[in-house]
Design a protein around this nucleic acid. Structure first.
Lengths: 340, 340
DNA sequence: TTGTATGCGTTATCAG
DNA sequence: CTGATAACGCATACAA
């Protein structure tokens, strides 16, 4: 089947291409008869506008680009689903790219999207992104940009995040209220803002409850294999502190699951011996043994919100309406289960 | 920053657009000097070809479309990752769409991709897809199409699948060899080919081992909430058969995890009282308690293979080389752990 | 080696 | 109401 064009319809009907185009787009200055004839033939011939030509002409593609650090990740999968659903509603297509936590790749993907002429871009930064020139380039090109979850504060664009610091704070305070006193933190990489904010929330909670901060209780998980990180650091923690620890705040649920595994293997009871709380609340949290208390991260909502905001800014740009960058902070809710 | 065009470069250099175009594309019939001047200026001006114009001209977009039933799914996430990596190597972009297991949406997404002018399409069918006209339409349009994982046998295009029947057969035989005799099957929806094939593998294994098939041991999981399906059917199974069951072959790991949860809650030991084996081997299987034996499904490889095959067929089509549809059957490996 | 002319399919302007 | 014409940015056959 070859693609039908306006020209073919015009020829068959012995009218001008202009007339056909107008009829199809329901312009007022076309006679009813002509319009109907065109519509009928178009349907019969299964006319589909050539999107390359349209894009070239109107300078927009109704396509957005999304860059995430990883696809195989429950949180990001949820985000994607939110984005796709929102895009479908607004009739946008989504080009998905991943950085694999690789800065160079992230830059390349940005260039690709720019050269592809997407109408807007959604990015969650890789952990290894330090230089932000590629983001500035997007802004220079006046392409609407929204950062979500893993953001860079210094970039002047809209952002959608959860209140990591507050969420971490709530989590640690909960542990403290439960009577735990020696609370370790298995933190994420040093670079990402989330990781920093959760760490700050942890510290703040200790401070506010008059528990002195002990840096030897903070363990770094940065091997990109969360489960192993949790498992191995759990061992290290016990080696270092023995009984002198009674709780852990883990920066992700997968790390927490690693901890559970190690503790289960070594007959350390949760929450009796050690309290545990995770972050992210992917659906497995409720079915581990013991089930895992965690911070609900609302990936789907984040995707939906980010995409919605992006489409809004694209729309505004088309109409030359100025929009100031805004930051949306999605609430994060502590979900208490058996582990503390 | 506004987009630089060939025209601007041409004007600045006082040469023709053609010369610029040729220089940029490294045509042989351009003098070294001209070429260098163009290259230099292009770099200085940060020239980026307008992809709409290129696509319109050459009638291809270096973009493929992918439709999957669901994004929040470990297996499909892996597939996506495989696709994205392969696409990146071959310099293709990926438009991702999901059907949400909805037939109408799947049809709509196909139309979208066709109208968008993608160079090829990759689909994993929704469970509710019965009519295949939308797939035929793709073929009519001569757009390379590849079905993966959830396929329709009757469609004449290349396919990438795993040998579900064989894998299920191996799994059930393993249970039998372990001495289990009353083996239940928690099957998936009636429609999808995978579900059918796994069921057939189950039956065949029983047959070959002289165990009579008992349809009352087969439970249907079709609520799209796998974990609950597993949990609830585990209860039902015990209500129906009490001690007269000693193993379960579950069609997905998440269902198996639901089963584990129910059994753990009710003091039924795995594998002592009931043996259990799952399917898919997502990474959680190894960290449940007990860890779950499962069939490794190689989602990443499936994505990689499907995309690679699609790019190959696109390439062949461009060069007018005929390619016959082929079916790739990826091996599925049984991974034995504690649960049986 | 260089440039001219044409067309890809659509939309928009403007004169009839 | 209708249609000729130009333009979007690029690639290529062909002429110079």
């Amino acid at each position: 089947m070859k693609n039908v064009t306006l020209k073919q319809i015009a020829e068959e009907l012995n009218i001008s291409i202009t007339a056909v185009s107008k009829a199809l787009k329901d312009y007022p200055d076309v006679s009813k008869v002509t319009k109907q004839r065109v519509l009928d033939l178009a349907k019969k011939l299964k006319y589909v506008p050539n999107s390359f030509a349209v894009s070239l002409r109107v300078k927009q593609s109704r396509t957005i680009g999304v860059i995430i650090p990883a696809t195989v990740h429950h949180f990001f999968s949820s985000v994607i689903q939110g984005i796709l659903n929102e895009a479908e509603k607004k009739d946008y297509l989504v080009i998905l790219l991943h950085s694999n936590e690789n800065f160079e790749l992230e830059k390349k993907q940005v260039d690709l999207l720019i050269s592809k002429g997407v109408d807007g871009i959604l990015i969650s930064l890789s952990n290894n992104t330090k230089n932000l020139d590629h983001l500035k380039k997007i802004i220079d090109y006046k392409i609407p940009l929204i950062l979500f979850d893993k953001i860079a504060k210094s970039i002047n664009c809209s952002k959608v995040i959860i209140d990591d610091k507050q969420a971490a704070y709530d989590a640690v305070r909960h542990l403290i209220h439960k009577g735990y006193k020696r609370i370790a933190h298995f933190r994420g990489d040093l670079n990402p803002q989330n990781s920093i904010d959760r760490f700050l929330g942890y510290k703040q909670a200790l401070l506010d409850c008059n528990i002195s901060y002990d840096s030897s209780l903070v363990y770094l998980c940065n091997n990109n294999s969360d489960f192993e990180d949790g498992y191995n650091n759990a061992k290290k923690l016990l080696d270092d502190h023995g009984k002198n620890v009674d709780a852990i705040f883990a920066i992700t649920d997968v790390i927490a699951v690693g901890i559970i595994k190690y503790f289960t293997d070594h007959n350390i009871r949760i929450p009796e011996d050690v309290g545990l709380i995770g972050f992210s609340n992917w659906f497995m949290s409720s079915i581990t043994s013991p089930s895992l208390s965690s911070v609900e991260q609302h990936g789907y909502e984040m995707g939906e919100k980010s995409a919605g905001l992006l489409f809004y800014e694209i729309e505004c740009k088309l109409q030359n309406i100025f929009t100031a960058p805004q930051v949306f902070v999605l609430p994060a809710k502590l979900v208490i289960r058996e582990s503390c």
